[in-house]
Design a protein around this nucleic acid. Structure first.
Lengths: 227, 227
DNA sequence: TTGGCTAATATGTCTAGACATAATCCCAAG
DNA sequence: CTTGGGATTATGTCTAGACATATTAGCCAA
């Protein structure tokens, strides 16, 4: 008892119970330390995590106040597709449909911050769950920043190889709803126009832009996040 | 320099440079503290944040090792729709289309963990950005856990009122792509069948399930996340 | 060989005190 | 009345040392 997690919980309780309403200044670390009978560092640990969570806002000299509009953050764990499928209790498989070197289209180079027309590796992969189309992956890889030798992407999916072989530093994801085009229709066995949940992802590594990928998910797919 | 953030950065550098490859055991806190000339608590602070970020895995007695499959997490900041629209430089407005008490449908009560047929407040709100349909919000509210008096939802959107008046504890979001139905077609001026990005959210407060909401976004909408 | 106990060990947390840093308050000079 | 310093103050971080706790390696007995 009276560990930093207990103090965090008690402070959170008072905030949620509106003992300390949004915008209110809460007692200083010294005062809380005395109240709870612990060292100031312990209170600091508790309040620091609450500040990271966006529940309170802290400023030197000005003190700590309850956030007016607590920013609600949800976390998405970006899955390796194979593990995602296996976790659903389905058999995983994939087919490499295309693999060639080509100058990347402008939208891709633009998002990755590479010169127009850079030669890149283009891969098109169909991921299967229980034998049925699950995700159509369209990927452009920047060969410049990849460690050699490159693997046989027909044997290991690019998705998985990248995670284990390249240090990924930052990136972004965008979700959109798009109608299935003729390509998705043919490859995934869908009526063109069917709504698909599409994730577009750019990824940067320690040595620069690594990859741009578009994942078109089979109809009905849900992307789930907790907060 | 040699603050905990510098130590964090240096450890991260060694991991990304593969000086310490995935799965490798890294030196203990005591050893690192000596190497960097700081107290063990400082190293601990640095490594703790790296563990939270999923870069390393720590176990008592067993030591600290570099994560094999670093879980990549993306963070989504759940916006108040009005602020989201204003941030895009567009004028915000909304219309309350429906407001009534009714027994909630089974999928809603099931997700919220409430008894079947519970009477709930149903609200349908169309959010406008620059005068054009932006999001169609379909919401079921649990009146049991809301503070009174309830506001006039024609004057303040439920979205915004909840954030400032109810302490929200946890919840989940799911994104899907769905074809526009006749209702969305009529209200948002779309051809039925148009792909829409739909977010479904359940929210729990300190006193229990608060609300279930479905947000159907106008075509072209992108939900953006960084990692 | 196997199961369970014990001791060793790395991380987790706490304390008390110190100095650093950023923001604010307040007063004096213009 | 405005503005520029300085004093004040709350948080941020660090240290050195201590005890707590989880986990494992090794040992011993069934």
């Amino acid at each position: 008892m009276n560990g930093w997690e207990d103090i965090r919980a008690e402070v959170l309780r008072r905030i949620r119970a509106r003992d300390w309403p949004p915008g209110a200044l809460i007692p200083g670390e010294e005062a809380l330390a005395e109240e709870f009978g612990v060292a100031r560092a312990t209170v600091n640990r508790a309040l620091t995590t609450l500040a990271e969570a966006g529940v309170i806002e802290r400023k030197k000299r000005a003190g700590t106040r309850v956030a007016e509009l607590p920013v609600r953050r949800a976390r998405l764990e970006i899955p390796v597709i194979r593990l995602d499928v296996v976790a659903r209790g389905l058999a995983y498989d994939f087919k490499l449909l295309e693999d060639r070197l080509a100058p990347a289209p402008v939208p891709v180079t633009a998002r990755l911050g590479l010169p127009e027309g850079s030669p890149m590796r283009y891969l098109e992969t169909l991921h299967l769950a229980g034998g049925r189309p699950y995700v159509l992956e369209t990927r452009w890889l920047n060969p410049e920043v990849l460690p050699s030798p490159l693997p046989d992407f027909a044997a290991i999916s690019a998705n998985e190889w990248l995670v284990t072989h390249v240090s990924l530093v930052s990136g972004d994801i965008a979700f959109t709803a798009e109608p299935a085009g003729p390509r998705e229709g043919k490859v995934m066995g869908l009526t063109p126009g069917t709504p698909l949940l599409v994730a577009e992802r750019t990824t940067h590594g320690i040595a620069g832009a690594v990859t741009w990928v578009r994942l078109a998910h089979a109809p009905g797919h849900r992307v789930h996040m907790l907060f």
